[in-house]
Design a protein around this nucleic acid. Structure first.
Lengths: 329, 329
DNA sequence: CTGTTAGCGCATTCAT
DNA sequence: ATGAATGCGCTAACAG
């Protein structure tokens, strides 16, 4: 900065003011300084700036699995919005492991990031961050009732709409493949499933709610069991991973979709429109969800929001494709 | 740090030495300091540390499109290895746009990152970074002959093996759907395609090399044209995006795969084993490629490598599935 | 509007 | 093995 100052014939502090938009500096000087900086290839040092001004333009993003298109889309949306605001994304994969998540939180504290977007595994993580003055936005799910900002898919409405679509086609025995119902995500989807049955005066056989683990292989086994033990005419999988398992099992049995059985999934991802028949799904606008998260943390950081917690609900949209049809018989 | 020092009854400099492994400190003092730090919830400030020591544990990662599973896997591999080494990943999506790429490079320079992993769009970007003392690893492709480290899929060998697989099945008119041949990636795949024909004494009709743009829709149009104008019995797509377009067109025409036409793709991604028939592909071990990139930058940063450039070639593996079969007639 | 002054929190000399 | 002193490059007070 000294060099730039000399080159432009001003003092270092003027360089600082001229380079950043904030602070006073006459247009003439500002132009001169910018030119000088450009000429000698000066690039400001973020570390020094952050240290002095106690701010940073790095935002922490903590997700479970980048290889899952859901998280990749979420991260893509976040990054897009952050980049537009000239912020950077520090991305950490915590593999849905509490220990890794806490470790990541500590690292982000060390980096003095002003904000973190996290798909939480443990309530402790967002808590610790908040306690240390970091603005936290939870994405996709809520653990218990936290008191922080959160951006969610409208799981209940989406699942209800999807279930209703099947009920309207005459299905009365619909299996739900689901991995968890403790988080708001699974709980919401299950609630929507239930609500649709209730609204349409169809008794819900609780045995048709098939719990499995978050894993395509396990989902396949659970689907097998569901088909063996119960006469279902349709299956809804609660997310894209479980859908893989369900589809694999149906194909293996050479069941005609949708003639013999209908299949639908929550969380639309690209492969679902490539398989034949293409899957009926609920698109939760994941990229947009990511953008919302980013906009929210940025607004918090800039102090543009009132203190009370913000709950953003991103709409879920039913996409009817070929995998759902009239109930057989 | 002052607080920790007081709490532990030592000087600030001792705290510094005790917390980081390097530097001298008696075991007793070290334990006492660590305990004190833990007790008062001290978290070191990365910005201050970076400023003073002129190092940073943030690595820049510049990719084209996080929503493409290829890049997501690459990033996942990189992050995994970085995290294990207690480094952080600053991820930037440049959308394959030269301007955004340069902007990102500048930001990373400002952050004083010691290393960057980039899937380059322009040779200028890695060049600028290197000129400023940043260790650069190019991933997936080489632009012209650069002089930096690079991690590549063994494109030629993989494409050759895939092409040979089809030739062995009796195909003599194989269409190649490809978007670019200027980068090492496309060039290598085309070279492998050619080499396989040569080795097997099959004349290659140059019209069967169908150039398209990097976009599923365009790939579909190109496939349509290829099918209309030429009698091909098999199609190879040069990457996962083009494969989507090709598959869509084949399905639209209700061509029986592989009875009427075979389809194969370079760059295996999950959906390719979900469609029916599952696609024969070349798996380029993308995650491992990411890990290699990370290991390479880290080794450079630690000064463990001799100055001459390193070229890592990640093996490509043929995976035969149902979409390829004997040539018709 | 601009220059001067004084640190931000830490790691690294240099003494001891 | 430890403590004291000295900036890293920058921004934010303050004074002019």
């Amino acid at each position: 900065m000294q060099d730039v100052a000399r080159e432009a014939g001003v003092s270092p502090s003027t360089v600082s003011r001229a380079l950043h938009t904030r602070g006073y500096a006459s247009p003439a000087v500002r132009a001169r300084v910018r030119a000088a900086a450009e000429r000698i290839g000066y690039v400001a040092d973020h570390n020094a700036r952050n240290l002095r001004s106690r701010t940073s333009t790095s935002i922490g993003v903590l997700i479970s699995d980048l290889r899952n298109p859901f998280y990749a889309d979420l991260a893509a949306g976040i990054e897009e919005e952050l980049r537009a605001a000239e912020y950077q994304m520090v991305l950490v994969n915590d593999n849905a492991d509490p220990a890794e998540e806490m470790q990541a939180a500590e690292t982000l504290l060390a980096m003095r990031v002003p904000g973190v977007i996290v798909t939480p595994v443990t309530a402790k993580c967002p808590q610790v961050l908040q306690d240390n003055g970091v603005h936290v936005v939870c994405a996709d799910r809520e653990l218990g009732r936290s008191n922080g900002d959160v951006v969610l898919s409208d799981n209940k409405a989406g699942a209800r709409e999807l279930t209703e679509h099947l009920l309207n086609l005459g299905h009365t025995r619909i299996g739900l493949l689901i991995d968890e119902t403790k988080w708001s995500t699974g709980a919401g989807r299950l609630a929507g499933f239930r609500a649709a049955h209730l609204d349409n005066f169809v008794d819900l056989d609780e045995d048709l709610v098939a719990y499995t683990s978050f894993d395509a292989g396990a989902a396949r086994q659970t689907t097998r069991k569901l088909l063996n033990d119960h006469e279902v005419t349709a299956i809804i999988s609660a997310n894209n991973v479980l859908a893989q398992g369900a589809l694999t099992e149906l194909k293996e049995r050479r069941l005609k979709i949708p003639r013999q059985i209908s299949l639908a999934a929550y969380d639309d991802v690209p492969w679902m429109s490539l398989v034949q028949p293409a899957l009926t799904t609920v698109d939760q606008s994941t990229v947009e969800m990511g953008r919302s998260c980013a906009r929210l943390v940025l607004a918090r950081i800039r102090g543009e929001l009132p203190p009370r917690r913000r709950i953003v609900r991103v709409p879920a949209r039913l996409i009817v494709r070929g995998s759902t049809g009239p109930a057989p018989r």
